[in-house]
């Protein structure tokens, strides 16, 4: 598979589109269907596609395993940190209303941060599981 020219070229053309679509689903979630969960899986799928065609070692050069394993807890930390920030600004845990002066702006900021946390955890978990499976040898 790694030496098939059509698959290699098609992957190179598709990959930016897949990642762009992932970002669209992430940041357009306020207006259309989508959000961190869906975008996370789409972004991870893009990287996994690259790994399938170009080999695992090529993928680990772009996204090293230590980065993936750091991102898994990082996303949850960003999410919970946003909640704590709501707490520190005088509201309840995960109350975004006081993060900024304008309530709508504050809500959108909070949702943005929270969805970013979800994106990071979901995409890195998918990649981590893929690494764990693909990195194993048949025994």
């Amino acid at each position: 598979m790694r030496f098939d020219a059509i698959l290699r070229v098609a992957t190179k053309i598709f990959l930016p589109l897949v990642l762009l679509f992932g970002l669209y689903v992430q940041f357009h979630g306020d207006y259309g269907p989508g959000g961190g969960f869906q975008a996370g899986v789409i972004v991870a799928a893009g990287f996994i596609l690259y790994g399938l065609i170009y080999g695992l070692s090529a993928l680990t050069r772009i996204v090293p395993p230590w980065l993936v394993e750091t991102m898994v807890p990082l996303g949850v930390a960003i999410y919970a940190g946003t909640g704590v920030a709501g707490w520190l600004t005088g509201g309840n845990f995960l109350d975004y209303s006081r993060l900024r002066e304008d309530v709508h702006l504050a809500q959108e900021t909070g949702v943005f941060l929270v969805e970013l946390g979800v994106l990071i955890t979901v995409s890195s978990t998918m990649l981590a599981i893929f690494y764990a499976f693909a990195g194993r040898d048949r025994s």
Binding site: G29, D30, Y31, G32, P33, G35, G83, L94, Y96, V103, H104, L105, Q107, E108, G110, V111, V114, E115
Partner: peptide, 16 residues
Amino acid sequence: TGIANAVTSTLASYRG
């Protein structure tokens, strides 16, 4: 919340 998609606002804000 100023967020047009009720799914997102419910998911991330009301039911955060």
